[in-house]
């Protein structure tokens, strides 16, 4: 990922370049990962209750707020999915790729990448100790999930730096 860069491409667009095939595969896996946001065990993480003991408030929240958040999260994933359709070869680096997207999609990208990391973590019960692992057997589903969490985290870090700059 040494060539990975996020930079302005004109006043209102961003260009993510230097995507190696591994990163590209992670990005192209996003729709499949995000489609599991309602899987058992995942939903409570993405749509938590607002209180620890107020049953009525929690029920109201799940009825009124959760659908709005669900829509927000789904829309972010769809935005990134549409942006990723425009991936092209990176002219600067052989066997690498780039994608440009509207700067105001930055929040959607952060939302989608963070969602994907959280979903993978819930699906595979990732712990603090797991996150410290650096040796992956990518034939093992949990290791593959961990690997993707780290890869997407690396990309998310670039986006956060851009958003904070």
């Amino acid at each position: 990922m040494k060539h990975l860069r996020l930079q302005s491409d004109g006043p209102q667009r961003l260009r993510l370049s230097g995507l190696d095939p591994v990163l590209l595969d992670c990005l192209q896996s996003l729709p499949e990962i995000l489609n599991q946001r309602d899987a058992p065990g995942v939903r409570h993480r993405l749509f938590p209750n607002p209180t620890t003991g107020e049953t009525e408030t929690n029920q109201d929240w799940q009825r009124l707020i959760t659908p709005e958040l669900h829509h927000l999260f789904a829309a972010a994933g769809e935005t990134v999915g549409r942006d990723c359709v425009t991936v092209v070869p990176d002219p600067q680096h052989k066997n690498h790729f780039q994608v440009t997207f509207a700067a105001d999609h930055l929040n959607a990208w952060m939302c989608a990448l963070n969602q994907a990391r959280l979903i993978l973590a819930e699906l595979f019960t990732i712990t603090d100790a797991d996150m410290a692992h650096t040796d992956f057997d990518l034939d093992q589903p949990k290791d593959l999930a961990l690997f993707r969490i780290h890869i997407l985290g690396y990309l998310l870090q670039l986006l956060v730096e851009q958003a904070s700059s």
């Binding site: 963070n114 959280l118 973590a121 990732i126 603090d128 996150m131 998310l156 870090q157 956060v160």
Partner: peptide, 15 residues
């Protein structure tokens, strides 16, 4: 706390 959210991301959200 959760083990997944990036520290930089959480900082940005608080801001």
């Amino acid at each position: 706390n959760d083990p997944i959210n990036l520290m930089s991301y959480v900082t940005m959200v608080f801001q």
